[in-house]
Each structure stands twice: as structure tokens, then as C-alpha cells.
């Protein structure tokens, strides 16, 4: 079982200005089963579009997304192919990902009954099992989402996703909206579930420290493209692309205290995706850019086994 994303692009038209936005621009990913791919990048890099595409909420403008060789998007139903309800998404905001008028037990029960995953008389037992699995007391099944804390709601969202017996979970900033003191628990839960259930994860975040903690492979995205990818330790211990280096340098680090030296690693802002720079999209902010970077589009090339970057200036 593999997730294969091959040369995927996604273009939107902005209604008013008629401008074209390239949210994704030739993204290729191959992720073997039971591995975790961390996708890191700043706003506008396309990581959320990619997430929506992997779960079939969006159709690629070109290229293919397949799971076990079968396309994920069902053109006829305009959504996730029914074969692939085993690909699930966990959202960032635990306050909007559960139906506010539905008890949490019912939201899980619905998944079980719609897909006939268990016998009718076993539904309650399975709900209890799933809630226990994510560390929620089954007694809370009769609560409404607003009666739970953010961390508890995120666990319920995870339990609901697990109810459909997924192989692949797309985790879109799953701990970013949570209080700092409960993030670690949810991270530990995700790691435990991965081991116990043999899940494959796509972990999307802007927080490099969380990406570092959970990923086997890492892809760094900038303006719709992957600029560096590889095993987590190669990418983070031995970053090659200037953008990856800048991201690592920009991570607020609590272990280095009181040196009171903030140096901004990058000048300028992320360009508007509607007016993409020519050549390498990063060249306007890049500390090592040369004139030809504004004309030469960059493609990924291997610099060490499995470690790829899209930059001509790194030898």
C-alpha cells in the first residue's frame, strides 16, 4: 500500500480579479505504508490544499493522486471515492470539526452504522472501545462537543476518524490549536496509535519541532512546490535548501535562553501566489540567489540517497 502523488497541480481562479492562483505546482510524493510524512511550510505553500486533495475534497487540476494504484478522487461523486473511506482527515480546529448538535458518541455511532462496520448490538461497545483507545472515558459519550476541552475534542475527532478503520490519516495541524500543556499528550497518542494500528500519516504543520518529532520523511514546501525532501534526520540535521535553513533558524527555541539576539533569517514576505515570481519562486527572498535564479525554474534533484532539493546554487 502506497500513497502516490504524481506531478499534481491545482489552479484556482479568483472570481473578482480573474487572476489565476497556482496552489500546487508539480508536486510528487511517494509514501510507503506505515510511514509518516511531515509536510512543513508557511501560509500559501499549498500544504492544506494538498491535504484536501489527499482526502478527496478537491480534484487535482492535473496529475494523479492514488492509493494502492487507484485514484482517490471520484469524478462521478465529486468527492472521495467510496473505496477510500479508509483515508481520513483530522482537522486543526477541534471546535469546528464536530457537529455542535450531536453527542460525541452519536457522531462515532453514525460512522459505524453508515458503513455497517459492526453489528447493531455491538455499536455501543465499539464506541466505548474507540473512545478508550484515544484516552477518553466512555462515560463522556453522552456529552456534546462544547462540554469538552479542546484536547478532548481533538481526541474525539481522532476516534471518529479511526471508526472508519483508516489506513491513512491526514493530520492537518492537529495540535496547533491546542493549549501548550496538552499538545504533548496528543502527540504521544498519535505516535502510540501509529504503532498499535499500523497507520500511515501525513502530518502537516508550520511547527518544525512537531514535524521533527513525528516524521520519518519530511517535505518542505514553498509556494506550491516541494523545495526539499528526504529522511527527517538528513533534512533537519543537514539541510541544504536555503529556505529549509531559514525555517530551522526561525524556529523559536526555548533551549537557548537570553542571548537576546534576534536576527531575521529571511528578508521580505511570501509573494502573493496570484503573482508568482518567475524562475525559482524563492529567489526574491533567497540569501544565495544569483541573477539566473529569476529565470531558471528549479526541479528536485537528489543530493544524497533519498534526499532531494530544488536549488541550482547548492552543489
Amino acid at each position: 500500500m502506497t500513497l502516490s502523488i504524481t506531478d499534481v497541480t491545482k489552479r484556482y481562479k479568483i472570481r473578482v480579479t480573474r487572476a489565476q492562483v497556482n496552489a500546487l505546482n508539480g508536486v510528487t510524493i511517494d509514501l510507503p505504508a506505515k510511514k509518516t510524512l511531515g509536510i512543513v511550510g508557511e501560509s500559501g505553500c499549498g500544504k492544506s490544499t494538498l491535504a484536501r486533495m489527499i482526502v478527496g475534497l478537491e480534484q487535482p487540476s492535473s496529475g494523479t493522486v492514488t492509493w494502492n494504484g487507484e485514484p482517490i478522487f471520484d469524478k462521478a461523486r465529486n468527492m472521495l471515492s467510496s473505496k477510500h473511506s479508509n483515508i481520513q482527515l483530522v482537522f486543526q480546529d477541534p471546535y469546528s470539526s464536530l457537529n455542535p448538535r450531536q453527542k460525541i458518541g452519536d457522531s462515532i455511532a453514525e460512522v459505524l452504522t453508515v458503513h455497517h462496520l459492526v453489528e447493531k448490538d455491538a455499536v455501543q461497545a465499539r464506541i466505548a472501545e474507540l473512545l478508550t483507545e484515544v484516552g477518553i472515558s466512555p462515560e463522556l459519550a453522552h456529552r456534546y462537543p462544547h462540554q469538552l476541552s479542546g484536547g478532548q475534542r481533538q481526541r474525539v475527532s481522532i476516534a471518529r476518524a479511526l471508526a472508519s478503520q483508516p489506513d491513512l490519516l491526514v493530520l492537518d495541524e492537529p495540535v496547533s490549536a491546542l493549549d501548550v500543556s496538552v499538545r504533548a499528550e496528543v502527540m504521544n497518542l498519535l505516535i502510540d496509535l501509529r504503532e498499535r494500528l499500523g497507520l500511515t500519516y501525513i502530518f502537516i504543520s508550520h511547527d518544525l519541532s512537531m514535524i521533527r518529532h513525528i516524521s520519518d520523511q519530511i517535505a518542505v514546501m514553498y509556494l506550491g512546490k516541494i523545495v526539499e525532501s528526504g529522511p527527517w534526520d538528513s533534512v533537519l540535521e543537514n539541510p541544504q535548501h536555503p529556505y529549509t535553513k531559514a525555517l530551522i533558524a526561525a524556529m523559536p527555541d526555548h533551549t537557548e535562553v537570553g542571548n537576546n539576539a534576534y536576527e531575521a533569517p529571511l528578508k521580505g514576505e511570501v509573494p502573493d501566489p496570484a503573482s508568482m515570481p518567475t524562475g525559482c519562486a524563492f529567489h526574491l527572498r533567497c540569501p544565495i540567489a544569483v541573477p539566473s535564479c529569476s529565470t531558471n525554474a528549479q526541479t528536485l534533484r537528489e543530493i544524497e540517497p533519498n534526499h532531494q532539493i530544488a536549488c541550482q546554487e547548492v552543489k
Partner: peptide, 26 residues
């Protein structure tokens, strides 16, 4: 556009179910 509606779509619920169990009550 709420996440809980997207979530049940990804879970493969039929459109009438999404409309009448998840959108209408809200």
C-alpha cells in the same frame, strides 16, 4: 464550509444524510 461537514463528507456519508443530519439542524 465547517470542518464537521467536510469531515462527514470524507467519511463517505450520503449527500441527503449530510444535508439533513448535519446541515439542517445547524
Amino acid at each position: 464550509e465547517m470542518d464537521y461537514v467536510k469531515a462527514v463528507r470524507i467519511l463517505g456519508f450520503s449527500t441527503p444524510k449530510v444535508l439533513f443530519s448535519h446541515i439542517l439542524p445547524n
